[in-house]
Amino acid sequence: MAHTKTPAGMALMALAFAAIQSCSYSIKVANQSGTAQPDPMNREMGFYNGKEVKVIDTVVNLSLLQNGAMVIPDCGRCGFHSVEYKITFGAMLRNTFTFGKRKSIKVKYVCTKTLNQ
């Protein structure tokens, strides 16, 4: 424990932290057209402010995904407004230790606002 408090230990920890951070990332893809399904009570700084955000945070058997897509029924005909795919260090570890048989999925998505035409 004492070792971590030395300058070298701290540097090592910082390096490990940086490595973990760089393994964790997220990518957002958003549709140029259409309006996001709103959620007036969702006040959070940034991209999701005022939008209705849905989250898939699960671990699935690979076979479930290999056979096709994960089907999301709740966006209706207007489809997705945006999708964010997140990879965390923990998820990568799980993938490694299960030899890829179990995949962590962390996806945030926003549907397109339903039309009334």
Partner: peptide
């Protein structure tokens, strides 16, 4: 009264 879902267009 939040009304941004009232979006009928004609």
């Amino acid at each position: 009264l939040y009304n941004a879902r009232l979006n009928i267009q004609q």
